[in-house]
């Protein structure tokens, strides 16, 4: 069967199945199990009300447990076994991994990514958000800077391959160097600094995200505070840094952490640009080197990523709980 037909069939079965499940299970609950008639119809309505949330939640909870909760445990257990998965080796994969240069490079590079990308994207996002705030063509400008968000990491990598290309007739960087009479260089092969050229791509993509959210936060600042500062004689820079930024600190933190989490997941850019060569490996791409070859090692790397994310996760849950109250 062609995948297209299969796809259409899946949509029909999937959507139809979901509707049938939700409609049917509610019907069965109301009409068959706890019918709202006879002597105890009051009690039956109450019972039905107690069961119904779980009917609504069941498919989602099932999928979440299977695809996200079980893997946390499953991955951890798998990471304690060897390559073929039949021998328990305890923390062997981790010990082996930490002693390897490849992992250390990937880890350090990832730390660098997690420091630079969120900082740069948030900085540019805030800059654009503030500058476009009162601009007549601000919305067009924002929309254009936001655009890379729609582009895949692979597509973005290709776009930047054109910028970084060695040939001065293709790569802008080398065209500029050529103009000043310098020999062309492959920026992706300059040790250490090549990491930054890769980070530029993610910053390019994520600035739009930061901008959109920070721009909304700036709009939300009460006007009186700014007006009062102006009357007191504050200059625009003081208004920005002393009045506006402190009021949107919370949002800045949210943006920053969201991008940090993203940095720990994106393997596409390194994979497409350098394939992890020239010491540009980061943890997600390092993991993909072992995927399909050494599942024990791959899950161990994945679990290290999980451990790094964990503090953010706990912080998020705390925030959510305090808002619920």
């Amino acid at each position: 069967m062609s995948p297209v037909l299969q796809g259409i069939l899946t949509i029909l079965i999937g959507v139809g199945g979901c509707i049938a499940y939700f409609y049917g299970s509610n019907l069965i609950l109301d009409k068959l199990i706890f019918p709202a008639r006879n002597d105890d119809h009051g009690r039956n309505i109450n019972r039905a009300t107690m069961v119904r949330p779980w009917l609504f939640l069941f498919p989602a909870l099932f999928a979440l447990s299977l695809y996200l909760i079980y893997p946390v445990i499953g991955s951890f257990i798998r990471s304690l076994y060897n390559r073929s998965g039949d021998t328990f080796i305890g923390l062997g994969n981790y010990v082996q991994m930490f002693s390897e240069d490849g992992f250390r490079t990937a880890f350090l590079n990832n730390v660098l990514w997690a420091l630079v990308v969120p900082a740069a994207a948030t900085f540019f996002g805030l800059l654009v958000a503030q500058l476009t705030d009162r601009l007549r063509w601000g919305n067009i400008a924002k929309s254009l800077i936001f655009m890379p968000m729609a582009i895949s990491f692979v597509g973005a990598s290709l776009i930047w391959k054109f910028v970084y290309a060695n040939d001065p007739d293709i790569g802008i960087i080398n065209a500029v160097r050529d103009y000043f009479g310098m020999a062309p260089i492959d920026v992706l092969q300059i040790p250490f600094w090549n990491n930054f050229f890769l980070m530029v791509i993610l910053v390019w993509i994520q600035t739009g995200f930061a901008m959109v959210i920070l721009s909304a936060a700036l709009r939300g600042i009460p006007e009186e505070t700014v007006e009062a500062a102006i009357i007191d004689g504050a200059n625009p820079f003081q208004i920005f840094f002393k009045i506006k930024v402190p009021q949107i600190k919370g949002t800045i933190v949210v943006v920053w952490t969201t991008i940090t989490i993203l940095v720990l997941k994106v393997f596409d850019i390194v994979y497409a640009m350098t394939g992890g060569n020239f010491a540009t490996e980061i943890l997600p791409s390092y993991m993909m080197d072992f995927m399909f070859r050494d599942d024990g090692r791959a899950t161990a790397v994945a679990f290290v990523i999980m451990l790094i994310v964990l503090p953010v996760m706990i912080w998020n849950i705390r925030q959510a709980r305090s808002e619920m109250r």
């Binding site: 893997p71 997941k265 995927m291 791959a298 994945a302 990523i305």
Partner: peptide
């Protein structure tokens, strides 16, 4: 925020 990577192998 659970990294997708965890889910791949299992």
């Amino acid at each position: 925020v659970v990294p997708l990577q965890l889910a791949l192998v299992p």
